[in-house]
Amino acid sequence: ISQYDEPIAHDGYLDIVLDDGTPCRVEIERAHMEEDTAKLTHLGGAGGRIRGATASLVDANRAGIPLIEIVTKPIEGAGARAPEVARAYVTALRELVKALGVSDVRMDQGSMRVDSNLSLRPIGTTEFGTRTESKNINSLKSVEQAVRFEMQRQAACLVNGVEIVQETRHYQETDGTTAKGRPKETMADYRYFNDPDLPPVLAPAEWVEEIRATLPEMPWIRRARIQEEWGLKDEEMRDLVNAGALELIIATVEAGAGATESRSWWVAYLAQKANEAGTDLEGLAITPAQVARVIALIGEGKLTNKLARQAVDGVLAGEGDIDEVVAARGLEVVRDDGAIEKAVEDALAANPDIVEKYRAGNKKVTGAIVGQVMKTTRGKADPAQVNKIIAEKLG
């Protein structure tokens, strides 16, 4: 069941910004409500895709669940930047829907999917070329890749005199290509007809204004405020947004951590872990509250940065919450002055040349002593405490 001639919303737009700061307006044709259909699970194909599958299972459990389909007007003139525009639009739309609390927009779990329609129009002509539709794209990276591949494929067809067929195509995450699906229907092929049991959806102006008054701060307004509060440059803010880190950093700050420390963890160590796992930051098995707890333990002197990374590794591995991992792995910083003093004395005794250089005026050589003490204590000693004891021992 789908809205046809009276969609819930129409003739809108969404302003987006590309990676280099170029503004772009995407016109929206309509947003209409539908009922979801059954889900097909393909067996034997790569990544659960239909290509190469030997059988398909029909799961009707989600049939009838409401969804919204948002259809843009043709985005003309994007040229070589069309893949970038597509990704930026989906990113902005996803951010907006999440901010409104409409959905968790987890593309990997099917909460939001993208169908990209693309056609090429030779320079100097006015009519659109034959379009194809790449179906069920489920990541921001895949949106960009699918559009780029179809541009290249269609261009090769036009150059070589091969007819482009209007059809649906299946995006292949394994290699970033699209594969032929089925011929694409025209509007008449859908054979729309009215359902006599469905009354019109009426939205009184008063109700619309009541809802408008309860809307949260829009993402772009919030972003501008955050950027000013944190003192970030435009390119720094764009990097955080493009990395999918901004909302996670904000949530970490709201959990009690400092903005600088939160940024450092998400865009450095955790981004590295996400890359190693082949996922995005949101796909990591750690929450902003847990990251804030790590930062708090560092601030309290209970963890060093090295130990904190080990604690985070434990959480990512499913070993429990931060405090549970710290306790189970015995990661908390050693505060026993006697044990640290003994480790310092042993290190100094084993390195008389360093002691001699220090007393000759080279204060930087103590780094080797600190390193040996940290090795002896398995990284659990407080470096500041170690340096203090070394200074005391060396006068």
Rank of each mutant, 00 (worst) to 15 (best):
K233Q: 11
E210L: 15
D234S: 07
D197W: 08
I250Y: 02
A245L: 01
A243S: 12
L240F: 07
E206D: 11
R222M: 00
A188V: 09
D234H: 08
V208R: 01
P183H: 14
M218H: 12
P200L: 05
Q227M: 06
D195N: 15
I221W: 04
E228P: 03
M218K: 11
R182M: 11
N242F: 12
D234Y: 01
L202S: 10
R191I: 15
E210R: 09
E209D: 11
K233P: 00
M218I: 04
D189F: 00
P204Q: 03
E185T: 00
A205C: 09
L232C: 06
L246R: 02
V208W: 02
K233N: 04
A203E: 10
I211Y: 08
R191F: 15
D234K: 08
G231S: 05
I249W: 02
W207H: 05
E185P: 10
P216W: 01
D197A: 08
T186W: 13
P216Q: 02
A243N: 06
P219V: 01
Y192K: 02
I226W: 15
I211M: 11
W230S: 04
E209A: 05
V241C: 07
A213W: 06
E217M: 05
E247V: 09
P196T: 01
V208N: 01
G181Y: 04
W207M: 07
E236R: 05
V208C: 08
E210I: 06
L202Q: 12
E217H: 08
R191M: 15
W207L: 11
A205Y: 06
P219I: 03
G244L: 05
L240D: 01
R182Y: 13
D197R: 14
L215N: 01
P219W: 01
L202T: 15
R182V: 15
I211K: 13
I226C: 00
E228S: 11
L248N: 02
A188Y: 13
I211N: 06
P183W: 12
D189Q: 14
Y192F: 15
R225N: 12
I221Q: 13
D197E: 14
R191G: 06
I211D: 03
E247F: 04
M218W: 06
T186G: 15
A188G: 12
L246N: 02
E236T: 00
P200N: 11
G231E: 05
I250Q: 10
Q227H: 03
A205K: 00
I249H: 02
T186I: 10
L215K: 01
K233F: 10
E235Y: 08
P219L: 01
E210K: 09
A245I: 04
L198S: 13
F193T: 06
E206V: 09
